[in-house]
Simulated scan of single mutants.
Amino acid sequence: MSSLPLTVARRRGRSVRHTLDVRASPYAYVAPFFLLFCAFGLFPLAYTAWVSLHDWTLLSEEHTFVGLKNFGTLLGDGYFWNATFNTLSIGVLSTVPQLLLAIWLAHLLNRRLRMQTLFRISLLLPNVTSVVAVVVIFSQLFGRDFGLINWVLSWFGAGSVDWAAGTASSHVALSTMIMWRWTGYNALIFLAAMQAVPRELYEAATLDGASGFTQLRKITIPMIRPTIIFVVIVSSIGAMQIIAEPLLFGASSGAGGGAVSGGPDRQFQTLALFVYEQGFTKFDFGYASAASWLMFLAVVVVAGVNYLLTRRVKGGLL
């Protein structure tokens, strides 16, 4: 009996397996991520949108469909707009100086320095430190009566500042905490991008008499603009989701009104804290879901605006 049909069948089987391996394997490799994303990302997002269309409270057995009523009420809620202002204010005060300082630190570490490895590792230490420890320590530093910051300000004749009581002062304190945690992390990202810039460009600029600042402005920043766009967008998204710092700051500083409310006058309540308050303090899940969806849309808008602005800078139009 001839073995030719068996050989042809085996070849066809190997061909089919090879085709399936080439075409199906990539989808099998990425399938776990998309399954987890659908379970813990996409489904909660869609379910939150459904809840936002109902009068959904924890103590009620029936959930009445109210359409866009929660969104309309939310747009007229002064506390919501106050939280939006606080989020944008703290985000700008923490993000802009943070990115500028991170680029400067990365530029310094990109040069030939002694103990470079030690300095680079030290930049990451604030980021790996527990946020609870960071806020507790900074709350003591910004203490009204015995804080180190007020003690230093007293040298210049300034009075004692109650950092947690005022809107501007509390935003400065929270922005300082956020900057301390994330500046080093972003500096390492910028440093990694700077390592890919050809050294010949700096050597040629040095021969032409360019200073370090000129090299940073004319060589480094144009060469790492894609990385700058990435860091700006990620930092903007993170700034819109601030919750741990104001929550712990309100609890550790002794500000009245409760930690979730962001002080007695809600002077540092962010959008994330507002959503938390509505959902897990007042148990109004429909209203909290509507607030979370508006917060999501605000994050998308802020990230998109930052992308367009940084892309415009990249194109040399500014």
Rank of each mutant, 00 (worst) to 15 (best):
Q140E: 14
F142V: 03
N186V: 06
S261I: 03
L109I: 01
F274T: 09
V232E: 08
V30Q: 04
L247M: 15
Y202P: 06
M194K: 01
L153M: 15
F280T: 12
A168S: 09
A244R: 02
N186R: 04
Q267Y: 03
Y287Q: 11
L35G: 06
V275E: 04
T129Q: 03
A288K: 06
F249K: 02
G315Q: 14
G143E: 08
M240V: 13
L271Y: 04
G91I: 08
A24N: 01
S252Q: 12
D77E: 08
T227L: 02
M177T: 05
P126N: 01
R23Q: 14
R266G: 15
L101P: 05
E277R: 15
W180Y: 11
L248F: 12
R23S: 12
S211D: 04
F43P: 00
D77Y: 03
G184W: 00
V260E: 13
V131Y: 01
F230V: 14
P32D: 01
L6Q: 14
A9Y: 07
S52R: 00
F119S: 04
L53C: 09
L35I: 15
N110V: 03
T7K: 13
F285N: 10
V16E: 09
L123Q: 07
G166I: 03
T183K: 03
L188W: 00
V128T: 07
R120Y: 01
E203V: 05
D77I: 07
N186Y: 15
S60I: 05
T48L: 10
W155C: 11
A272E: 11
V275T: 11
R266S: 14
L153E: 08
T206D: 06
F71M: 02
Y29N: 01
V275I: 15
K314F: 12
A102C: 09
R112N: 06
V172I: 15
Q278N: 13
G315C: 07
E245Q: 15
W56S: 11
V305C: 08
V305G: 02
Y79M: 10
P222L: 07
V132M: 10
M223W: 00
L191H: 03
L88E: 10
G209T: 07
W182P: 00
A9I: 12
I221R: 03
L247T: 10
V299R: 06
W104C: 10
L153K: 00
E61A: 12
E61R: 12
